[in-house]
Every structure is written in structure tokens, then in C-alpha cells.
Design a protein around this nucleic acid. Structure first.
Length: 421
DNA sequence: TCTGGGGTCCTAGGACCC
DNA sequence: TCTGGGGTCCTAGGACCC
């Protein structure tokens, strides 16, 4: 039997903020989404006060003040940096690590004599070396690990580590787990299952009619069911696969009415995705541009549109991608609209050495490639956006987001590094 | 005033081909 | 009444995750 462990950081973004603000330990903390839109991470204390996941900040602002909840804008450069520290530490403790997301990793602990003890040791070491508290779920499949971890977080009496390696424990835990808390089952699928009388994870696991499950929940649903039965459908994947799509989009801090500002926002997003495209050594065949007004605002003309531009020859050249994106914008731009969000997505990615050239379109020649490389190098060394395309404009404030509660870049900027008194 | 951003996977159905 | 059959490829949209 395989023994997998899921290591999941507790309230990750909030606890990243606490690393450099130890006085916030045991204090309710929340972290807001971009634009200070809504709460996306909450500590145990904040949850206990009743702050909901995704709660719009403007609705809970007063409540936070009244209850002394520490509020932070999201500081992603800090979080990704601390995430890599956690992952690095995990790799020292286990040779097989799949980084599943910024705050989660699956480990293969098969063959280790006492996995539960080992998991407790991992939790202790991560806490000591990175100051990030984690919960760990042990089980024979990823799906069961998720359930184990759910319990480890919910019920502190287990000390943050729960094992579902034993069939008896699986029955017990799944029997108490509401169906919609299961990994891969959210509201939509949860509702369909409840129609069949399936209320708990155990009901789902033991439901006999697999054809019906396949029909209602597609192949994925049946795989989740198999995973609960101890059959591995999602093995650990060790090599980091290249992304199949890359996107960059943002809600504007202020509404945008003019085409110039909108173009600059689009160009900036295009610049962003092109840089990431090159960093994974891919090229793209399509660019999608989209814009929309503010769906939450009444009494304005609502508008949303997207359009795809195609390259005859795939490219990773920032200027070509920006040019194509701006062409697309021409098609969907409409005067008189109060724009609130815009974004660029690149699709049909492939390896940069794999494509065939097209006779009728200029391909990226060596000089262009050298230019991109130089640009990437400067931006890597001197900070992103040190050099950029002029079409990105110079006045980001016209469309950039609001971040009124941001902590310093403690770990990624020399100017903001913490000082000892 | 004010409601995030970035991804993946799957399926149905249309278009097209022979 | 009744209008082939089988295959592939592509796309849009739904659902979900973190």
C-alpha cells in the first residue's frame, strides 16, 4: 500500500504576515484579495468571529475595526518566497515531493516504518524552521489525504496530524464528513449528489451505481469515488509540467473610460504573460483579450467582450504579443463604457523548439530573441518593469489596484528588509 | 465608494471528412 | 413515418481548485 502525506499550511497568507509580526500571534488576522476586494485568508481567530471566506471587505470593514482584526492587502511576493522556503524544507525531509499549490504539497512516505511519527516530526521541523504552522493528512490516496487533512485542521485535538491509513478510521471520518467538503465536490456536484440521498463522504464512497456517478459527475466524479475506496487515480506527479495557458488580468482601482488607459493596461498584461511564457521556454499561438464593466454596479451600461487573435507562427516576443493584443482591443473597445476590468490570456502554448515556421509571416529572428533575453535579464536583476514596452505607458496609477493595507516586502526587497533595533 | 486572480479538466455538440 | 455511418478535431462552457 502507498502511503501519501498531504502537508497543508494553515491560513497560509495570514501566517506569512505573522512571521514578521509575532505580536499578531493569537490575534485575528485576514488577508484581502487584490484591490482589497474580499477576504481570501483568515486565521482561526478570524473564522471564530464569523468572517466568511470571500466576504467583500467594504461590508466587513467596520466589523474588523470593532473586533481588532488585523487586515492586510495581499503581498504575493512575500507569500511565494515563504512558500519556497517551506517546500525546500520539505524536500530535505522527503525525497518525493509534489508541490500542489502555493501552500500544499503531497509527499510519498511509502516504506517509512512509522509514518504517523514521521509526519509529526515534519510538522515540528517546518514550524521551527519556517515559522509556518502546517496540518498533515496521511492516507493511501490523495483523496483520502485531503479528508484526513480536513479533520486535522478542524479538530485540534489531533495535534494537526491525522492518519487515515486504517480502514476503520476511514469509515469513522468519512461518515462524519459532509459531502460538499470533499475534494472535487463543491456546491454544484454536492447538490446533485444530495438528490440521490448522498449526504456524507461515506455515503458517496459506498454508492453502488458507478455508471450514474459517471453520468452526473463525469469521469472526475468516479475517480474521486475510487480514491475514497483506496484506489489511486491521481498518482504523485513529480516533474513540474509547463502551463497550458497563462493569463494576467486585474480589476482597476478606479473605473477607466478612455481607450489610451485601457490600451496601456492591456499592453501591460500582454507584457506580463509574454515574460512568463519565455520563462517556461514556450511560445503561444493565440492571444485572448477581454474587458468588462462593473457587474456589481447598477444604473450603468453593462458590457463585456473577449476576442482571440491568432499568430500564423507561434511566438514569445513581447512586442508581437502586445501588438496582437492591441489589435484585438480595437475590435471590442466601445466608447462611453465604464470599464472595470481587463485581461490578457495566451493559449495554445507549445515548446519553443517544436514549431514549424510559416512562409508568410516573419518569425522571431535571432536579434529579436537576443533583445528579449537581454530585457528579461535586466528585469530579473534590477526588478520587474525596469525596462518595458512604451505601449505599457508610464502612468500605471490610472488603472492600478488599491492596496491600502500592504505589509513590506520583507524578504524580496533590500529597502524593505526588517531592521533589528 | 467598495465584490480577486489564475489555473485545469471534462463533455457536448458542431463542423468536417470520406 | 422513413433521408448513411463512422470518425476526428475543435470550441464553448461548466465545474472545480487554491
Amino acid at each position: 500500500m502507498s502511503v501519501y502525506a498531504l502537508v497543508d499550511c494553515d491560513s497560509f497568507y495570514c501566517n506569512c504576515e505573522r512571521v514578521f509580526r509575532p505580536e499578531l500571534r493569537n490575534v485575528p488576522v485576514i488577508v484581502l484579495s487584490n484591490n482589497d476586494g474580499c477576504a481570501i485568508s483568515r486565521t482561526r481567530e478570524a473564522k471564530a468571529l464569523g468572517v466568511e471566506m470571500g466576504a467583500p471587505f467594504f461590508k466587513i470593514r467596520d466589523f474588523c475595526k470593532k473586533n481588532n482584526i488585523a487586515v492586510f492587502s495581499s503581498n504575493f511576493s512575500l507569500y511565494t518566497n515563504l512558500s519556497s522556503r517551506v517546500m525546500r524544507t520539505l524536500r530535505k525531509l522527503s525525497p518525493i515531493v509534489e508541490v500542489y499549490s502555493v501552500d500544499e504539497a503531497f509527499l510519498d512516505l511509502s516504506g517509512i516504518p512509522n509514518p504517523l511519527e514521521y509526519a509529526r516530526m515534519i510538522k515540528e521541523v517546518i514550524g521551527r524552521e519556517t515559522k509556518i504552522p502546517v496540518s498533515i493528512g496521511l492516507a493511501p490516496t490523495k483523496g483520502l489525504c485531503k479528508a484526513a487533512c480536513f479533520l486535522a485542521k478542524k479538530d485540534r485535538s489531533h495535534g494537526g496530524v491525522v492518519s487515515l491509513l486504517d480502514k476503520y478510521d476511514q469509515d469513522e471520518v468519512l461518515g462524519k464528513m459532509p459531502i460538499e467538503k470533499l475534494w472535487g465536490i463543491a456546491r454544484g456536484r454536492g447538490l446533485s449528489l444530495k438528490m440521490l440521498g448522498i449526504k456524507t463522504a461515506k455515503d458517496f464512497r459506498d454508492y453502488k451505481n458507478v455508471h450514474l456517478i459517471q453520468k452526473i459527475l463525469t469521469k472526475v466524479g468516479r475517480q474521486i469515488q475510487d480514491e475514497l475506496r483506496g484506489i489511486v487515480c491521481f498518482p504523485l506527479s513529480l516533474e513540474t509540467e509547463k502551463k497550458k495557458e497563462i493569463m494576467s488580468s486585474r480589476t482597476f482601482g478606479h473605473s477607466v473610460y478612455d481607450k489610451k488607459t485601457l490600451s496601456e493596461a492591456i499592453a501591460s498584461h500582454a507584457f506580463e504573460v509574454a515574460e512568463e511564457l519565455r520563462s517556461q521556454k514556450s511560445v503561444c499561438k493565440e492571444v485572448l483579450v477581454y474587458v468588462r464593466s462593473n457587474p456589481h454596479k447598477e444604473n450603468i451600461e453593462q458590457y463585456g467582450a473577449s476576442v482571440v487573435g491568432k499568430f500564423l507562427t507561434p511566438t514569445s516576443n513581447s512586442f508581437k504579443i502586445i501588438e496582437k493584443a492591441l489589435e484585438c482591443l480595437e475590435d471590442i473597445w466601445r466608447p462611453g463604457i465604464e470599464f472595470k476590468k481587463a485581461g490578457v490570456r495566451i493559449m495554445k502554448l507549445q515548446d519553443n523548439c517544436e514549431y514549424t515556421l510559416n512562409m508568410f509571416e516573419a518569425h522571431d529572428d535571432l536579434r529579436e530573441e537576443a533583445l528579449m533575453k537581454t530585457m528579461d535579464l535586466i528585469n530579473f536583476r534590477e526588478g520587474s518593469r525596469t525596462v518595458k514596452s512604451m505601449s505599457c505607458g508610464t502612468n500605471e496609477f490610472a488603472w492600478c489596484m488599491n492596496r491600502n493595507h500592504c505589509s513590506p516586502k520583507y524578504t524580496t526587497s533590500w529597502h524593505q528588509i526588517p531592521k533589528c533595533k
